[in-house]
Amino acid sequence: MLIRLATVSSLALGIAAPALAAGPEQTATQPDVMVAAPAPAKPKLMFTLRGGVASNPEYFGSDENAIGADLGFSFNYLSLRNGRTFGNPDPWADSMGLTFGGSFRFIEERKTDDFNELAGLNDIDAAAELGVSMRYGTEHFAAFGEVRRGFGGHEGWVGEVGADAILRPTDRLRLSMGPRLFFGDDAYSDTYFGITAAESSAALPAYDPDGGMVSAGVEFGARYQINDVWGLEGAVTWEKFTDDAADSPIVQQGSDEQWGVRFGVTRVFSIGG
């Protein structure tokens, strides 16, 4: 199962003393206005956390889903003391134009003792994938690409590209839908879809898949803003394994179509400023 994540400154001003009343033969002296130097801007960080429940396949190729936690993190905005800023101070606004960020995915362990149909296969430890992402967004369209490297359960490289059409029926409701393509190298494919000679059996013969496109699918997402800091977010995903992944005996004894559903509550956090 997968677990999928205003600059404030102050200015102090001196206050000029009022001019003294002057008679016909008197003059009033206006004191100099004292202006303090601008105080350094305080660093400020804004981010959003999501927590909820999700239903995902029990393992890649399973024909049954399991219920688990849905956790997510997204970076919104950062202002530094030197005045540089990153992101958008409005946590509910989409980034426009070309932006770069991080990418993370967590894959739970696969213990074959939990699945009779996988008897004889080795266990696979949990894996964390870390990488970078690139996104181009407009008011009603967004496209993205991500590259990650696995640590733990697999040591391979994966990538994902996708695009979304975006609708905004109201100021608080955002809907998105678009295609997804997922890729993995030989190390990734061997880990989750391969079967070594030592693991093979009559039900699961030896199989050595190559890397390439792993799956193609679509995602429908929805987000609703309750107030300035709280929101609701959910998504439905469908993907179909392709090429060598689809031909794996692990997938053929299960299902080459994978459905996922998640729903969570989001909370915006602001630190500093």
Rank of each mutant, 00 (worst) to 15 (best):
residue 41 A to S: 12
residue 96 M to Y: 13
residue 162 G to F: 00
residue 244 D to T: 04
residue 179 P to C: 03
residue 36 A to N: 05
residue 8 V to L: 14
residue 128 A to E: 05
residue 8 V to Y: 12
residue 187 A to W: 08
residue 107 I to H: 13
residue 135 R to C: 01
residue 269 F to E: 07
residue 208 D to M: 07
residue 55 S to A: 05
residue 42 K to Q: 15
residue 202 A to I: 00
residue 213 M to H: 02
residue 80 L to H: 04
residue 201 S to I: 10
residue 198 A to Y: 00
residue 51 G to S: 12
residue 204 L to W: 15
residue 261 V to Y: 07
residue 248 S to P: 05
residue 259 W to M: 12
residue 5 L to K: 13
residue 93 A to M: 10
residue 19 A to C: 11
residue 187 A to D: 15
residue 105 R to M: 14
residue 36 A to G: 07
residue 3 I to T: 12
residue 173 L to Q: 09
residue 232 L to F: 00
residue 265 V to C: 01
residue 189 S to P: 06
residue 153 G to M: 07
residue 48 T to A: 11
residue 226 I to V: 09
residue 156 G to M: 04
residue 24 P to L: 09
residue 146 E to T: 11
residue 145 G to T: 05
residue 94 D to S: 14
residue 196 T to C: 03
residue 25 E to I: 08
residue 197 A to G: 08
residue 47 F to D: 10
residue 250 I to K: 05
residue 227 N to F: 11
residue 265 V to M: 06
residue 210 D to S: 12
residue 221 G to R: 00
residue 232 L to P: 00
residue 158 V to D: 02
residue 59 Y to Q: 10
residue 139 E to I: 09
residue 142 A to F: 00
residue 139 E to L: 09
residue 31 P to I: 11
residue 125 D to H: 06
residue 57 P to F: 01
residue 119 A to Q: 12
residue 249 P to Y: 12
residue 203 A to Y: 06
residue 176 S to P: 07
residue 168 R to V: 07
residue 218 V to D: 01
residue 97 G to L: 13
residue 186 D to W: 07
residue 207 Y to V: 03
residue 223 R to W: 01
residue 256 D to F: 14
residue 172 R to C: 02
residue 204 L to M: 03
residue 91 P to V: 00
residue 122 N to D: 14
residue 67 I to D: 08
residue 178 G to Q: 02
residue 131 G to K: 00
residue 169 P to T: 03
residue 244 D to H: 08
residue 100 F to Q: 01
residue 116 N to G: 12
residue 46 M to I: 15
residue 255 S to L: 03
residue 251 V to M: 04
residue 198 A to M: 01
residue 18 P to S: 06
residue 175 L to M: 05
residue 115 F to I: 07
residue 123 D to R: 13
residue 29 T to F: 10
residue 134 M to L: 05
residue 108 E to A: 15
residue 117 E to N: 11
residue 242 T to C: 07
residue 248 S to Q: 05
residue 85 T to W: 08
residue 59 Y to S: 04
residue 147 V to S: 04
residue 61 G to P: 04
residue 167 L to R: 12
residue 40 P to R: 10
residue 137 G to S: 03
residue 172 R to Y: 15
residue 250 I to C: 09
residue 33 V to R: 14
residue 258 Q to T: 12
residue 221 G to C: 00
residue 172 R to S: 02
residue 188 Y to D: 10
residue 167 L to M: 15
residue 266 T to G: 06
residue 147 V to Q: 08
residue 183 F to M: 04
residue 139 E to Y: 07
residue 206 A to N: 05
residue 49 L to S: 14
residue 15 I to T: 13
residue 47 F to A: 15
residue 246 A to S: 15
residue 11 L to Y: 07
residue 254 G to L: 06
residue 217 G to T: 09
residue 127 A to F: 08
residue 217 G to E: 04
residue 30 Q to E: 04
residue 53 V to K: 13
residue 215 S to D: 06
residue 92 W to M: 01
residue 220 F to N: 09
residue 166 I to F: 08
residue 271 I to M: 12
residue 78 L to E: 12
residue 223 R to E: 08
residue 114 D to M: 11
residue 7 T to E: 11
residue 271 I to A: 07
residue 178 G to L: 01
residue 253 Q to P: 13
residue 2 L to A: 14
